[in-house]
């Protein structure tokens, strides 16, 4: 697979490590009353869809940036790549 890095252009997927579902960006609020349940779901449960999947890839052997890659799990086709930071901001995360 070739990942079209937003800063570096097309890079081979073997330069990256993959962490999994990009929902890991949405860390639950530890002060919430339902925090224990929320963290369990956040850490352990996955949608694991057959089809489009947003996932976190880390450019370990490159510029060490985190990316959000939108990829189809049935075909492995990558349709969108963005910096994780920008994706998180667009989701309303400030840090």
């Amino acid at each position: 697979m070739i990942i079209n890095h937003p800063l570096l252009g097309p890079r081979d997927a073997s330069e990256f490590v993959v962490l999994g579902d990009a929902s890991l960006i949405d860390r639950p609020n530890r002060k919430s009353e339902t925090a224990a349940r929320d963290f369990y779901e956040y850490q352990y449960l996955r949608n694991n869809p057959a089809g489009e999947h947003r996932e976190l890839w880390f450019h370990e052997q490159g510029d060490r940036s985190w990316l959000v890659v939108t990829r189809n799990t049935l075909t492995h086709k990558i349709t969108h790549v963005e910096l994780a930071r920008e994706f998180a901001r667009s989701q309303g995360r400030s840090k």
Binding site: D12, D21, E55, T73, T75, H76
Partner: peptide, 12 residues
């Protein structure tokens, strides 16, 4: 190492 339902893997 990545989520897949494709029943085929990659060269790495």
């Amino acid at each position: 190492g990545y989520n897949s339902y494709a029943q085929r893997g990659g060269m790495p």
